[in-house]
């Protein structure tokens, strides 16, 4: 049987994007088009309702620079992101190493650790509001014998939300690390053992370098998730007490839907989107450089 060269080329390269075309078309129509067309509003003073709208140039971006609330929320957003990225991935890695070991109950444990991921973030926040009950005899306080006002004390509330996010998404990081661990060839471990490497040395010199792609994905996804965190904050504290847990996402929500400043809110959203994109690109660029293959 002979196959023409053009047909072979088609078979070798084209399907990867042609198969994706229908999905890409839908994505472009329902995500890209509205997002790009929404950018225009960032340069207007539209209230979100009615026809009155005038172009204000870059005024909204100038307002953002002088907006104490928005600038304060950037600090909160970065703190939340750093805390969740570090702890979520650390816990996720430990869980993955734990359930990768030859345990009888590892399938059950994997399901249990992953279960919170499938729950809606708003539901998780409501659930944790009960766990974070400030009453010393209830919830986490009752369990640990503490007197902490988890969501009401401005110096604690942000970290309480971080704890909630880690609880929900550590299982997600675990699954990605687990996939990475499954891809580490057993022969390399055996070779290292023959060379006299201990458990820690094998992790340091065999497992960790080969986990690099999983680390890249996990760090990128958790960073993006942290930077645009909204649901948990909105449902648990609504940015309070005061402005202690206000994030960029809650600020842009309030500007649009509570204060009726849709134009300004879109400007904040645009800055957030560009910031997330820039951080992700830089992160991926540096992390990909340390990836190796077995």
């Amino acid at each position: 049987m002979t196959v023409s060269s053009s047909r072979r080329r088609f078979t070798a390269s084209a399907p990867s994007w042609l198969f994706a075309a229908p999905a890409l078309a839908v994505y472009a129509l329902v995500v890209l088009y509205p997002a790009v067309s929404g950018v225009v509003y960032a340069f207007t003073d539209w209230s979100g309702i009615g026809q009155d709208m005038s172009f204000v140039g870059l005024a909204n971006f100038g307002t953002l620079l002088g907006d104490d609330q928005a600038m304060g929320s950037i600090g909160n957003t970065l703190l939340l992101t750093v805390a969740t990225v570090a702890v979520q991935n650390g816990v996720g890695l430990l869980l993955a190493l734990g359930v990768h070991a030859k345990l009888k109950s590892r399938a059950l444990l994997r399901v249990i650790f992953f279960a919170p991921v499938v729950v809606s973030p708003v539901m998780v926040a409501f659930l944790w509001k009960y766990i974070y009950n400030p009453d010393p005899s209830a919830g986490l306080n009752g369990l640990l014998g503490l007197h902490v006002d988890w969501l009401g004390d401005p110096s604690v509330a942000l970290w309480s939300i971080a704890g909630m996010v880690v609880w929900q998404y550590a299982g997600y990081s675990m699954v990605i690390f687990l996939a990475g661990l499954e891809g580490v060839p057993r022969e390399l471990h055996e070779a290292a053992m023959i060379d006299g490497a201990g458990t820690l040395q094998r992790f340091r010199y065999v497992t960790w370098p080969l986990l690099a792609p999983a680390v890249t994905i996990n760090l990128m996804l958790s960073t993006i998730g942290g930077l645009k965190l909204f649901d948990q904050v909105f449902a648990a504290t609504n940015g309070g007490p005061g402005y202690a847990t206000e994030t960029l996402s809650t600020v842009l929500y309030k500007q649009a839907f509570v204060f009726g400043k849709f134009g300004y809110s879109t400007a904040v959203a645009l800055v957030l989107a560009l910031f997330v994109a820039a951080v992700s690109l830089v992160q991926v660029y540096y992390l990909r450089r340390r990836e190796v293959t077995a």
Partner: peptide
């Protein structure tokens, strides 16, 4: 619409001693 949410936030700050 901004005064009312600011009132909410400052009362929480006052109660927190902040």
């Amino acid at each position: 619409a901004e005064v009312q949410p600011v009132h909410f936030a400052v009362v929480q700050e006052l109660l927190a001693g902040e």
